[in-house]
Write a protein that binds this DNA or RNA. Structure first.
Length: 440
RNA sequence: GUGGCUAUGGUGAAGCGGCAUCACGGCAGGAUGUGGCCCUGCAAUCAGCGGUUCGACUCCGCUUAGCCACCCCA
């Protein structure tokens, strides 16, 4: 009872996407969908919650996402498995891929998604507990060209969003099943020699996942990293060639990149190519707009047939904040054709049937049925930005006519309702041409 | 999870230990059937709870939320 007030605010780390924000969402969804469809990807939607072990097995028990950021749902019965809100998209899609036998579809299998993800972390700018990711996955191809294609699509999406001039692509390789083991071993034995110099965080990372020491921001760890073994030098021949071919592919496309030898990603399932898009201007890690990489073992690890895969995901809220920061022009499509004005009860009823007919004919309309005076209704028509006002008074209600007032020119005429459609079309077209002329 | 800063009508801001102001927006009007300008009026238990005080929006504590940094990620 203490918290009447608490009930009236959005839970921590969530937000309302208000009407004035929607143009950004519409813009992003539209560009994203179009690109994915043009690359012949198919849309997939998986549940917002999954069994917890789906994520503990894939992302890694020791990763921060699993160890401290999972949103567990309350159990309702004895012996029920743990359910969690999905912290990312890939695991669920891989699960669906196996569950529905998608390995029998013609390869490559290409899927894309857009939806909310949930992580229980402390909110900050650009970081929410419920946030949206857009992303895609390609199953069944281990060719480096497939990695290039994935990066190309990611890049193209960001290009459509007019963000590429401010963004940099970082890339690295984490090695395959075999050499990643060696790399981990090499790193472990190297850092073991200096473990008393590592920060406490990295000290425990050493036992859990030595790769993560590489992107520690602490000065002391970084200097150890710099003089230590490089992943690239310990890649097996195949992985080296793979990386080489990916880079050649990017050169071919003219996509510039930074080879960052200490780029590792927060999810344990990555193998070989990993990449990330960051804001050039911003050095902090928080500026990560999105990233992805190859995960050749995950499908098999879940019990599916061995299937190589690459994926990408980006944060929608971060994209929106960049669109705002760089003042990207978002097309505004909203316009109002007619505003319906009534005087008297009879007219009010007419307004509703007229609204039905007008929308059937494809016009947009608005009205204020709660307002009575002509003056205030006209004010509303003006505020809503209507091109035309249609006025129905006592007289008009009786003889099936309306007063058509052009709000831009203030000219007015009385027309019969059965003639209305054509006259409206003409006037709206004229108004549209006039406004276009004004813009040029 | 740790530390710092912040919290005033819908929005953005002023303000002071004792009448809470301004702009924009909203609503209702400005003579009965005509908008955009203008004018008038209306709307805030000053985030919540508790304490100090004769008296607190103003000082103190807690809670909640936001911002920033760390951690980590999108």
């Amino acid at each position: 009872m203490a918290d009447n007030n608490q009930l009236l605010q959005a839970p921590r780390g969530t937000y309302d996407a208000l009407p004035e924000e929607q143009k950004y969402w519409r813009f992003i969804k539209k560009k994203f969908n179009k690109r994915c469809e043009n690359f012949n990807f198919s849309r997939i939607d998986t549940p917002f919650f999954e069994y917890a072990n789906l994520f503990t097995r894939s992302i890694g028990e020791t990763s921060d996402i699993v160890s401290k950021e999972m949103f567990y749902l309350a159990k309702r019965g004895e012996g029920e498995p743990d359910l969690v809100l999905r912290p990312e998209g890939t695991a669920g899609i891989v699960r669906a891929y196996i569950e529905h036998g998608m390995q029998n579809l013609p390869k490559p299998v290409k899927l894309y998604y857009f939806g909310p993800m949930f992580r229980y972390s402390r909110p900050q700018s650009g970081r929410f507990r419920q946030f949206f990711q857009l992303g895609f996955e390609i199953f069944g191809e281990d060719d480096p060209c497939s990695d290039v294609l994935a990066i190309l699509l990611s890049f193209s999406i960001l290009k459509d969003l007019k963000l590429t001039s401010n963004i940099i692509l970082e890339i690295n390789s984490l090695g395959c099943k075999i050499c990643q083991k060696d790399i981990r071993k090499t790193l472990t034995s190297y850092f073991n020699q200096y473990k008393e110099y590592l920060c406490p965080e990295c000290f425990s990372r050493l036992a859990e996942n030595p790769l993560r020491i590489l992107d520690c921001k602490q000065q002391r760890c970084q200097s150890l990293v710099k003089s230590g073994p490089q992943i690239v030098d310990h890649l097996c021949q195949d992985c080296k060639e793979h990386l080489q071919k990916v880079l050649e592919g990017l050169d071919e496309l003219g996509i510039t990149y930074d080879l960052n030898p200490s780029l590792v990603r927060g999810l344990d399932y990555y193998t070989r190519t990993v990449f990330e898009f960051r804001d050039k201007a911003d050095e902090t890690r928080q500026s990560s707009l999105g990233g992805g990489g190859r995960y050749d073992n995950l499908v098999e690890q879940y019990g599916g047939p061995a299937t190589p895969a690459v994926g990408f995901a980006a944060g929608v809220e971060r994209i929106i904040s960049k669109l705002k920061e760089y003042q990207v022009k978002i097309p505004q499509v909203k316009k109002l054709d007619v505003f319906l004005i009534q005087i008297g009860d009879k007219a009010k009823k007419k307004v509703i049937t007229l609204a039905r007919d007008l929308t059937d004919q494809g016009f947009s309309f608005n009205c204020c049925l709660g307002k009575d005076s002509l003056k205030s209704q006209l004010r509303s028509a003006d505020k809503f930005g209507a091109t035309i006002a249609l006025i129905i008074g006592q007289r008009e209600a009786l003889d099936d006519s309306v007063i058509l007032r052009n709000m831009l020119t203030s000219s007015q005429q009385t027309v019969k309702i059965n003639k209305l459609e054509n006259i409206l079309k003409k006037q709206l077209l004229k108004a549209k041409q006039a406004s276009e002329q004004k813009n040029n």
